[in-house]
Design a protein around this nucleic acid. Structure first.
Length: 815
RNA sequence: GCCGAGGUGGCGGAAUUGGUCUACGCGUGCGACUCAAAAUCGUAUGGGGCAACCCCCCUUGUGGGUUCGAGUCCCACCCUCGGCACCA
């Protein structure tokens, strides 16, 4: 009979579609299992290996779950707004809407050819007005809750993309999208108040079944640190400079203050004679790019303002400096400099010849060299001398609080989420600007604010929508006066921060989703996607979900119960695949040659799923060989070429059953934990066992029931990884459609016990032989048999001091 | 610098709570089938020693330790990858 090929793929894809096999049944919602792969951007290129690795193997996981009786919900959609379509439009003149929908169309076809269980009835496309209407609704919900606000702030501007970026999209001062350096600009922009959720986003992590490293990344990103706010009065200006510190215990060593160049008090602290120098410095700092300002190895620059503050505890005069090693957006934008116990302040003081007092000694009383940044014992700190750092932090905070000059506080690295973008291909921000009423939300009934087609989307540093007068011109919903629409569009991460809520109720036209229904369908039971979204998408989505929870729209605070990251498949050269390197592996060629199941199965077999690795052509050939080996077996069985009797060779039968049931147990466990490579290894072992049985047992003694059972098990266990192939083999054996409607096999523990087991015999922990003993043998019996082993016996002539027996495993003689 | 993950054959990768290191596969050697090759099947395969073996020694990044027994636990160090980083 014919070999497995892409024609068989097509045959079964048709059957599945015609029979509606994978259609989600809402009636069975009580058994639902929501399995989600991160949806992708519809690029013009074909599906790449990464898509297959993510979607294909997540689908395999879901298929096993289906066979185990779950009503699997496995939707797919497209994160369709975004820059690539727009950049493509700028180059070619083809409208983003046109190219995007064309790409979606081809990508759907390719995803179908993958043979996954996606239920397209629940598809979601973020650039569809039926979807972004609710993205805009979400914006308004946050606005009403006081969680969306407009503010002027220094923001990250990418000169190449001609738009602002969220902090998360700037990596080491470089635009995450286009690799160009990012600069700072002062702009009025929309923000989501994610910082208000910092603590809850942190605490929520503990309850999640997520990879520890991902949780750790989010913790790092949120960057919580406990400390104190301390105010240094400036009597001459009738003001105070507030600093944030985690080291209140070093307060007596603070002998100057440093303001960030953009700090609002810089001007008023500056004395007349210093004005020119300060202004100069601030201006130069403002022109520096993000990378220049954050590079660690450059010399610490700064300038004295001429102003002085008062030390809150000693009353001493403390000079005020401006330096760009202090960042406006963290803490209070000002620090107390403690050159004796902080490396940065130390360096700054040395550069500018400032005194470096010691206020902390090592716990043993020895004066460790400065800067000494560890905790220790206080000295030169007035009444606090002799206290250890930890108690001093509390005591000093208390006396500051008594004086009204400070209080304990918590600072976060996390900043509010900047959501405006000066680009075209995104959801318009549903706000209207009125000269009399200010910023006014678009009434919900007027949603969606449609993205106009006729727009000059060439980037010119301002929002493309500003070039569409019919779009901009409108009336104020509050006063009916003339007004203009907000011309920015939303960060595409807003689109993807709630799509998983829309899937189960994607056709709802009256609300984004029905609360009761969504509470039954979510949280997502298993989410799978790349680790590159660890902060950004996964943090934003948690935030949005938590906000909706607080506002009563959903009944669960966390959207993704369990999360797995697939690794990355690298080119054959072990480097990241890229067109410029010419090391891109295109799935299509392999699928044409071998069929989609061989491709999927190689991805399962060749790598540790979590780690990924380099592509190897030999690996896919090996997988094709294995699949054909199974095919030959099935064909021999189906055609009657293989003679079978009614039994028995008890040993061979038991051995075959042993392999069969061990395979069931281990494939079930390993697939559950995304250890697909060992699953395939077990399938190969079972296949090897079948062939061995055939070659070792004479035809009249072969047990037909045992062979059929093992074959049936093999195909069932293989089905999640090779769905088309397994259906085909199942059919050839005359078994009922569909293999996926048959239950997942269950391991019989009784069959996983052999009559005899091999025991390792060690002498002083070194392996000196193995012996066969009956499975239930007692410790004494095992020891006796081990002693009888001639090779072992030669080591025992000097007498045995101790014997350790681990039943079923080993014997160790200590001599 | 801080935090996290990891270092196992020629290669991809396996190893329950400490219990026969290297499953499964690739590659390679030998053999079968064939006129021959491919495909397929069988068989061997961690490294070294020995004329040879059912023999001995060594081996999970390095060095110590705990234990009858360590890839696994402890200490110190080296290297790789990822995250954070002038964050006060």
């Amino acid at each position: 009979m014919s070999e497995y090929s892409v024609r068989i793929d097509e045959k079964w894809q048709r059957r599945w579609e015609e029979s509606g096999l994978y259609r989600f049944d809402p009636e069975s919602v009580d058994d639902k299992l929501y399995v989600l792969s991160m949806f992708s951007y519809p690029s013009g290129a074909k599906l790449h290996v990464g898509h297959w690795y993510n979607f294909g193997l997540t689908d395999s996981w879901a298929r096993m779950k289906r066979m185990q009786g779950y009503e699997v919900f496995e939707p797919m959609g497209f994160d369709a707004f975004g820059l690539p379509a727009e950049n493509y439009a700028i180059q070619t003149g083809i409208h983003p809407r046109e190219s995007t929908w064309a790409n979606i169309h081809t990508m759907r076809q390719q995803l179908r050819a993958m043979g996954a269980m996606f239920d397209w009835d629940y598809e979601v496309v973020t650039c569809d007005p039926d979807y972004y209407r609710w993205t805009q609704w979400l914006f308004l919900a946050l606005y009403r809750a006081g969680l969306a606000y407009r503010a002027e702030a220094p923001v990250n501007w990418c000169p190449d993309c001609q738009t602002v970026l969220a902090n998360e999209q700037v990596v080491d001062g470089i635009c995450e999208r286009c690799d160009h350096p990012v600069v700072h600009r002062n702009m009025t922009q929309w923000f989501f108040r994610i910082t208000a959720y910092a603590d809850r986003l942190l605490e929520g992590l503990d309850s999640l079944e997520w990879p520890e490293r991902t949780k750790e990344m989010q913790r790092n990103w949120i960057g919580r640190s406990e400390g104190a706010r301390i105010r240094f009065p400036v009597p001459e200006r009738d003001a105070a400079i507030e600093v944030f510190t985690t080291r209140a215990d070093t307060l007596f060593g603070a002998n100057y203050l440093v303001l960030a160049p953009e700090h609002p008090l810089v001007d008023s602290m500056t004395s007349g004679d210093r004005r020119g120098a300060v202004r100069d410095y601030v201006e130069r700092a403002g022109r520096k790019s993000e990378i220049e300002r954050t590079s660690l190895d450059r010399e610490k620059t700064g300038v004295f303002t001429g102003g002085y503050a008062e030390h809150p505890l000693t009353g001493e005069r403390v000079p005020i400096w401006v330096a760009d090693y202090v960042i406006l957006s963290y803490g209070t934008g000002a620090v107390m400099a403690v050159p004796g116990h902080d490396e940065r302040d130390h360096e700054f003081s040395r550069t500018h010849d400032l005194p470096i007092p010691r206020v902390i000694e090592s716990p043993d009383g020895s004066p460790a060299p400065l800067p000494h940044t560890e905790d220790g014992v206080l000295v030169n700190s007035g009444t606090f001398d002799g206290m250890d750092s930890a108690s001093a932090r509390e005591a000093i905070a208390q006396s500051l609080a008594d004086a009204g000059l400070g209080e304990p506080t918590v600072s976060y690295r996390l900043r509010d989420w900047l959501v405006s973008r000066q680009r075209y291909w995104g959801a318009p921000i549903p706000m209207i600007h009125c000269d009399t009423c200010g910023a006014v939300p678009v009434p919900e009934d007027d949603l969606p604010v449609l993205l106009p087609d006729e727009v000059d989307y060439a980037p010119r540093g301002k929002a493309p929508l500003a070039s569409a007068p019919d779009f901009v011109r409108t009336v104020c919903p509050a006063c009916n006066g003339p007004a203009s629409r907000d011309v920015d569009t939303l960060d595409t991460f807003v689109d993807s921060s709630w799509y998983f809520l829309r899937y189960p109720d994607n056709e709802n036209v009256t609300e984004p989703f029905d609360r009761d229904w969504i509470d039954r369908m979510l949280p997502v039971d298993q989410y799978v996607g790349g680790v590159e979204h660890a902060v950004m998408h996964l943090l934003y989505a948690r935030f949005i979900n938590m906000v909706l929870y607080d506002l009563g729209y959903v009944g669960f605070p966390e959207p993704f119960r369990s999360l797995t990251h697939q690794g990355m498949i690298l080119g054959p050269d072990g480097r990241r695949m890229s067109k410029s390197r010419g090391n891109v592996v295109s799935p299509d060629d392999y699928i044409t040659d071998h069929g989609s199941d061989v491709f999927r199965m190689y991805l399962a077999f060749g790598f540790n799923y979590i780690e990924g690795g380099a592509w190897e052509d030999d690996g896919i050939r090996a997988t094709a060989r294995f699949v054909d080996r199974v095919r030959r077996w099935v064909d021999a069985l189906a055609s009657g070429d293989m003679e079978l009797g009614t039994g028995g060779d008890p040993d061979a039968d038991a051995e075959l059953a042993f392999v069969e049931h061990t395979a069931i147990k281990r494939v079930t466990e390993d697939a559950e934990g995304f250890r697909f490579n060992t699953c395939i290894a077990r399938l190969m072992e079972l296949t090897n066992a079948l062939y061995r049985y055939e070659s070792e047992v004479s035809p009249d003694r072969r047990n037909a029931d045992g062979v059929h059972s093992a074959t049936r098990t093999l195909l069932s266990l293989m089905a999640p990884f090779a769905p088309h192939f397994s259906e085909e083999m199942w059919e050839r054996l005359g078994w009922e459609f569909s293999i996926f409607n048959h239950p997942w096999p269950e391991a019989d523990e009784d069959k996983m016990v052999l009559d005899t087991v091999e025991i390792a015999v060690q002498v002083n922990g070194r392996l000196r032989g193995t012996v066969e003993v009956a499975a239930g043998a007692s410790e004494e019996e095992i020891e006796a048999i081990a002693r009888d082993n001639p090779r072992v016996a030669t080591y025992l002539t000097d007498g045995v001091r101790r014997v350790i027996v681990v039943p079923g495993k080993l014997v160790n003689f200590v001599v």
